[in-house]
Design a protein around this nucleic acid. Structure first.
Lengths: 343, 343
DNA sequence: CTGAAAGCGCTTACAG
DNA sequence: CTGAAAGCGCTTACAG
């Protein structure tokens, strides 16, 4: 392991000078700079990042905290796309990303304390928000640079990047209403995630504004669906006044819905229309292709990293709440004509 | 920031003693241990991980190197599942994971040098193997603890965890042959990935052993497929002696194939049968459900982390090549009867 | 069972 | 433009 001292000795200068050359310090003669750089090259010098961190009190690393249970999350392309956006920026900004998963809630607290209070990272990105998340509490109390993808209340030192999920669900539902549907159902997700709460609210809002009734039986449990798409859909389709359209919490769930309907012999969109959220790559490859609200997932991730780095480097808390625009991508699953035209 | 010195002072002992309490050193009196622990709790002490790393010369962190272009990889559930397995183990073993993406090949070398030679991590997991990968070269030359998910040749200090892809493709092809197919095609992936090479080889082997001819036109370019599943499939289905079955490089590509066939009005498996690889969660939710070789993706990841940690902690190079067993999961896409029974 | 001292590899005022 | 010195927060022989 070649150190700064070795370089200094070989170059006939002091360690301080070598250090200054490395950090492009201004007042170093060109001659020295060149000589030192040449020798570093020759001797294969690489600065010890730990030593650097210790004295600079920065790590040039960020942590991504995966929502528990990490078991499921990767089943969703959504997180992959989010990671892609985060990494695109953080790599460019010169930050390493630490991926932190926790098995239990206690575990999670401990892991984060260790990383954050142990100064292993300079900032944290939380990938999802629960109601009254103790983790957010912890980070806010320490005023630790944090960006949450999602929303939270009552902590204005936590920067958030989010979709306007109420509006997004409103738009999706309105799309169905415009297609002439009046009996529109909603397939819910995990209830204590804010995203679930918001999307359901947007759906309700659109229905109410359009003067349409909501039959509680039209609200389908997405969790139940996972166990058996067949039975869940069988139940929905046998309600006397069954919905003719469904707004589905996310694309993966929509795949389950599609599958259940298929097994029952129903056609989408002829028998029932579908729209969902996130617009993962496969939504387009489903048969029929699934209409989905594109929430700019990559952009969410990229922006999260960007805001976090800015917060760290410039010590300025930017706007607390940042919204990434969404847009509905209409495909076969919600347009009757698509099929009839044999598209 | 409360340090070991602060604790020492408050507890009326030396910093050495505090350090020993933290690391559960044997010969420390119970009384001192308890007092120090209590005070650490009271004062909210958290060890500075960077300082610890500097002196112990270990980081308790591993790096995952994402294959370039990171742009695409997350589009595949496969990597998510792999990450899940890796994290499951590394978290348990007390290692943090660093996620490293590189934009360009040069960049990649530089990033890895920085992490590895800068002692930021104790080991590296490479997620995919190319022919003559310079990264493998670099890591092998430094004898740096490395696990490759895939295979490589001529570096016996690189531990590998892999699927027997030749056998897996052989099995998948044989499955088709047993269904009575004689004209079986293959949809290839990126040609310079070893996994592509191996799966194609396994397909050829099965065909040759069964005495079946391979028409070069039956080998379909998966890359071309991405641009237009429609045109790629249209080409295949219009070959005079068109294949009646396709072995597809992976599930995502199979979705593209399915989509192209659908647009052309062909039925799977009635008109053409399909089998693919990886068995991502969505394979089961496709319509029809896709037959796929389950390669134990989670297990691949878990094992990779396990072997790496063992290599680091016990300094023993385990078996260079480790194979995770695979098994074919048969679904509708390759069984005519499935459909006829209305399953 | 415990402490004083040296050191891990770097940075950064301070002085010249 | 450059160097000597102190220090970041920890660990670990060495000595008692």
């Amino acid at each position: 392991m070649v150190t700064i001292k070795d370089i200094a000795k070989a170059a006939g200068v002091s360690p301080s000078t070598v250090s200054r050359v490395i950090s492009n310090h201004s007042r170093i003669s060109k001659a020295t700079t060149e000589k030192v750089k040449r020798i570093m090259e020759e001797m294969g010098y690489h600065p010890n990042l730990m030593a650097k961190s210790l004295v600079s009190k920065t790590t040039n690393a960020l942590a991504i905290v995966l929502p528990r249970p990490a078991e499921e999350l990767f089943q969703d392309f959504f997180f992959g796309e989010l990671l892609r956006g985060i990494l695109a920026h953080s790599t460019k900004a010169g930050y390493d990303m630490l991926l932190s998963a926790a098995t239990s809630p206690n575990d999670e607290q401990e892991t984060i304390s260790r990383l954050v209070l142990g100064r292993r990272v300079d900032g944290v990105i939380l990938l999802s928000a629960r109601q009254d998340d103790p983790l957010i509490e912890l980070l806010a109390n320490h005023d630790f640079p944090t960006v949450l993808i999602g929303r939270t209340e009552g902590h204005d030192n936590i920067i958030t990047v989010d979709t306007d999920n109420i509006q997004a669900a409103y738009d999706a539902t309105l799309h169905m209403i415009k297609q002439g549907h009046t009996r529109i159902g909603f397939v819910v997700g995990e209830p204590n995630l804010t995203v679930s709460v918001d999307r359901l609210a947007g759906y309700r809002k659109a229905m109410v504004e359009a003067g349409l009734a909501i039959n509680p039986e039209w609200i389908v449990d997405g969790e139940f669906l996972q166990q058996s798409g067949y039975r869940a859909m069988s139940f929905v389709m046998n309600i006397p006044e069954r919905p003719t359209a469904l707004v589905v919490i996310d694309d993966i769930t929509a795949f389950g819905v599609l599958r259940g309907l298929n097994e029952l012999g129903y056609q989408v969109p002829t028998d029932i229309s579908l729209v969902s959220f996130n617009n993962i790559a496969l939504a387009e490859l489903a048969s029929p292709a699934i209409s989905s609200v594109d929430i700019g997932t990559y952009q969410l991730g990229y922006t999260a990293s960007h805001l976090l780095v800015r917060r760290i480097q410039e010590h300025l808390t930017s706007q607390a709440r940042n919204i990434i625009p969404h847009r509905l991508v209409v495909r076969e699953s919600s347009i009757q004509d698509f099929h009839k035209r044999g598209n």
